[in-house]
Design a protein around this nucleic acid. Structure first.
Length: 925
DNA sequence: GCAAGGTC
């Protein structure tokens, strides 16, 4: 061991780490600081001893990556080569202009050093940056000795331990990043050039930018992010509202009101609901069967990491994630909050949490709370929970300096600082405590329940007003107590589509699927907005633009998952293999690029899919010569929306008919016609109902196999809104162009609030353009259609291929045919349908067999046997007489749980076929 | 003019 002092160049990934580590190692003794070439990256100097070796330590930093990857010059220009060449064009790493000063500092300092110690973040990117630093330093001084400091937190013990146990840099980690960079560059550049050059000039793309400057970028992170937005949008469009029924019960006493909920939730079968409701109203006496009292805790949030900060700022303040990170960065630079880019959501046991709280005691708004927190007598303190993530480099985001507001702060600086402080104080507080009482009652064998809650201690909620926990008082009940409900109603509702994705939803999806990193997610979201792929409304919800939807649709029609997270997931797995030494960088690169090139070439062969998808939304540009997709058709009426142009009948390339406004794209009024239309021609006959006229009638011919048997193949119809046949067939068969085929995966009925803001001009009832929900022509038909569905459950597209398994209709005796439903909710489900056009009988096949599952619970024509007590011989004489064996009827007779045949057309109280029992005037009570 | 990843 030489006793001669060696000079050691230490390099951290960012200035803050250089400063912290220098302070720890020098113990703030003899620490000097001087300027480097870069104004942000200072150089700290102090003496230290590494394993007995006296060292003159120089500590500086970079700012993230020092180098970028680019194609060689001759491939840089867009028209310099075929985009497919970019999969093998030579690439090089270089130091960009704005990093040259850091490079010069490293070169100058390296020349006078014997050792180089790499203090970059201990993750893959950090390891890669370490090798960039090594490249620069060894080019200036090839004799320098390389060492890596491996640390897991910026705390004394870790740092001293790291410097006394220096290791070798990990090439595998760095290789993994090299592979990722190269794949991202080649895929991104090739697809971006391809789709931009293919589409930009071929269509009139109405974006706020000059067409010539429009870039239709593709990237392995931005496209899956776009995919999340489009997928949700399609889910909303494919949603078929479904009517459901539920029984509500309330009870008012001297102590207040209790609103009981039906424990079945709701039923989709009206007849079932009516039967049960009937039983309840006939024996309305309620018996309290259970009173459950329990203490409930509402826990404070986990310590704050980047994604959570972005999500909460979006939810509480509607700040964009990009703006949040900008403001957080400024607060960090000014020393008010800790480092804002961190995955960590648990505090190290060594963090001095009390001191952080102490600093906040003087704040006019939360100072008192901080004082209470520190007073052991209050018992308010509780050690923070662990969220389970630790990036080993930074603590959770927390306040680092007291402020009651600074002169230069904007409202957003104040809000974000307040969020960070209140979140921190909440984390070290006790959970809120509530007392919950759940009361269950039985009415005629049906169970109902209500929950009351009293907040006993607010605790953390006192300092965290962003979260709330509602209390609700209910009267006192005892088991066995009986009462007559104040109200007992049969109510209806309709399933709603899920809402558009909010910024917080989007961040969650990206986080879950591994798209981007905590430091880049907001960039990808911003990129979608900058590229005009999506728009964001005032409640931070995202809608794809026509451009965004068309691009995703084009690749989807090719059958590629380029807009799904899968590609990124595969790359992530490959990177992991490289970083573990399981695969080599070259192997992964060769394999991955070969596959992606094949995919690229295939996509280019199938470019017509992209063109077709774009053609649905955009006019062909004259620049590209001609407009084959929008040939002018016959005039049907004057457009009621723009009141300028004519609406004409058109046939799209995919064979579907529509009536669209010639003012397109300025006016987007359109009526989509049923997908089952095979021929359509405008006649000279006019409608004498629809205004403003004239509205010319259209002679339609439908494909027989695609419409229910009780509809005629030929139909003279009106698109003005008066034509119920057309409306029904549109509902049954789906609209022509695209939406029915877009429903991906099961669409779960949800009860979210009505869609407030979908794409402009799109009706939320029928999803067509040209009118709003309020004046939707299908709106008033909705209830009639629901009624029709109840009467005649032929609510599907029918495939008449399976005719052999026939049974006799129990209603009229005619043969029944086994068919397959083709609606979104029942696609593939078999049912028997009577062949007689006069008879409406049908029964689901799985109700005849012993099928099980939720579907039979919610949509079955028989009452589920979830409540066997109901058949206990109560009610009117005939009820309970039935020979029902299990949850499903064993014969083709359409029966209720009680065994009663159900005609579906008469009132159960008076037998009158003109109404149902819930509105029967003879029902009484 | 293209990606995504660091960071001021």
């Amino acid at each position: 061991m030489s006793t001669r002092t060696v000079t050691v160049l230490n390099v951290a990934e960012k200035p803050s780490v250089a400063k912290s580590v220098s302070a720890i190692l020098s113990r703030n003794q003899g620490l000097r600081v001087r300027e480097g070439r870069s104004r942000y990256n200072k150089i700290f100097e102090f003496t230290y001893s590494i394993r007995g070796q006296p060292c003159q330590m120089l500590f500086t930093s970079v700012t993230g990556h020092l180098m970028e990857l680019e194609f060689e010059d001759r491939y840089r220009k867009w028209h310099s080569c075929d985009p497919a060449d970019l999969y093998h064009a030579p690439v090089r790493k270089f130091v960009p202009e704005d990093k040259k000063d850091i490079k010069r500092t490293l070169e100058e300092e390296a020349r006078r050093c014997q050792w180089l110690v790499l203090w970059l973040d201990c993750d893959r990117e950090g390891e890669n940056i370490a090798f960039e630093v090594v490249d620069v330093c060894t080019a200036a001084n090839r004799y320098v000795t390389l060492k890596r400091a491996r640390f897991s937190a910026l705390i004394d013990r870790e740092i001293h331990n790291a410097v006394q146990n220096l290791v070798e840099p990990n090439k595998w980690f760095a290789d993994a990043v090299d592979a990722r960079q190269e794949i991202d560059l080649r895929i991104g550049a090739s697809f971006t050039r391809f789709q931009t050059m293919l589409l930009r000039d071929a269509f009139v793309i109405d974006t706020p930018t000059d067409d010539r400057n429009l870039v239709l970028s593709y990237g392995p992170c931005q496209f899956p992010t776009l995919g999340f937005v489009v997928e949700r949008y399609w889910e909303i469009q494919a949603h078929e509202p479904e009517e459901f029924w539920l029984i509500n019960c309330s009870h008012r006493s001297d102590e207040g009101v209790a609103n009981f909920s039906w424990m079945r939730g709701h039923l989709f079968d009206y007849t079932c609901a009516v039967i049960i409701y009937e039983m309840c109203t006939e024996e309305p006496n309620a018996t309290v069967t259970n009173v459950k009292q329990q203490e409930k805790l509402k826990y404070p949030p986990y310590p704050l990491n980047t994604i959570e900060l972005e999500k909460r700022a979006s939810r509480y303040f509607r700040m964009s994630s990009e703006h949040t990170m900008k403001v957080a960065e400024e607060l960090y630079q000014a020393g008010f909050i800790s480092y804002p880019r961190t995955e960590t959501d648990s505090f190290s046991s060594r963090t001095d949490l009390h001191t952080i709280v102490q600093e906040q005691q003087g704040h006019p708004e939360w100072g008192i709370y901080a004082q209470r927190l520190l007073d052991p007598g209050t018992g308010l303190w509780r050690n923070p929970r662990s969220g389970g993530h630790d990036d080993k480099a930074h603590p959770p985001i927390h306040p680092t300096k007291f402020s009651a507001g600074e002169a230069g702060w904007s409202q957003d600086h104040r809000k974000l600082y307040e969020l960070v402080v209140r979140h921190f104080l909440a984390c070290v507080s006790k959970p809120a405590v509530g007392a919950e009482t759940i009361v269950e009652i039985d009415i005629a064998g049906e169970q109902f329940s209500v929950c009351g809650r009293v907040i006993l201690e607010k605790n953390y909620l006192d300092v965290y007003p962003f979260e709330s926990w509602g209390g609700s008082m209910i009267p006192t009940y005892t088991v066995g107590q009986q009462f007559i409900p104040t109200t007992l109603t049969l109510d209806s509702g309709v399933t709603r589509p899920p809402p558009l994705l909010s910024e917080a939803d989007l961040l969650s999806s990206m986080d879950k699927e591994g798209i981007g990193t905590d430091a880049t997610m907001h960039d990808h979201i911003k990129k979608l907005l900058d590229r005009f792929y999506v728009t964001k409304d005032s409640s931070t919800r995202f809608t794809p633009t026509n451009l965004g939807e068309a691009l995703v649709m084009g690749y989807d029609d090719m059958g590629y998952k380029l807009w799904k997270p899968d590609l990124r997931a595969v790359m992530e797995r490959d990177m992991k293999s490289v970083s573990e030494g399981v695969k080599s960088k070259d192997e992964v690169l060769a394999n991955s690029l070969q596959q992606m090139k094949a995919c690229f070439l295939d996509a280019r062969l199938n470019k017509v899919k992209l063109l077709e998808a774009m053609g649905i939304f955009f006019e062909r540009s004259n620049r590209a010569g001609g407009d084959e997709l929008h040939a002018t058709g016959e005039v049907v009426r004057k457009c009621g929306l723009c009141q300028e142009s004519d609406m004409v009948l058109k046939k799209n390339r995919d064979g579907n008919f529509m009536v669209g406004c010639l003012g397109f794209p300025q006016c987007r009024n359109a009526v989509w016609l049923p997908g089952s239309v095979s021929e359509a021609a405008v006649t000279t006959n006019t409608c004498n109902i629809c205004t403003p006229g004239p509205v010319y009638l259209i002679q339609f011919k439908f494909r027989q196999l695609e419409i229910p048997p009780n509809y005629s193949v030929n139909h003279l119809g009106c698109i003005g809104g008066c034509d119920e046949v057309l409306t029904q067939l549109t509902e049954i068969c789906g609209r022509g162009p695209r939406m029915p085929a877009r429903a991906r995966g099961p669409i779960t009925p949800t009860s979210h609030a009505n869609q407030s803001d979908t794409r402009q001009g799109l009706c939320t009832n029928c999803q067509q353009t040209g009118h709003s929900l309020n004046d939707c022509p299908s709106q008033n038909l909705g209830s009639r259609n629901a009624e029709r569905r109840r009467m005649n459950q032929h609510n599907g597209n029918f495939d008449l291929h399976a005719g052999e398994d026939s049974v006799s209709c129990s209603s009229c005796g005619a043969p029944c045919v086994l068919r397959t439903a083709n609606t979104a909710n029942n696609r593939g489900r078999k049912f028997y349908s009577c062949q007689s056009q006069e008879c409406n009988f049908f029964v689901w096949e799985d109700n005849l067999n012993n099928s099980t599952g939720e579907r039979s619970f919610t949509r079955s024509n028989t009452i589920p046997a979830s409540n066997p007590g109901r058949n206990g011989g109560r009610g009117r004489g005939q009820r309970g007489r039935g020979s029902r064996s299990g949850p499903h009827a064993a014969t083709a007779t359409f029966v209720s749980a009680t065994g009663d045949p159900i005609s579906g057309r008469r009132c159960f109280v008076c037998g009158d076929p003109s109404h149902f029992a819930n509105v029967c005037p003879n029902r009484g009570g």
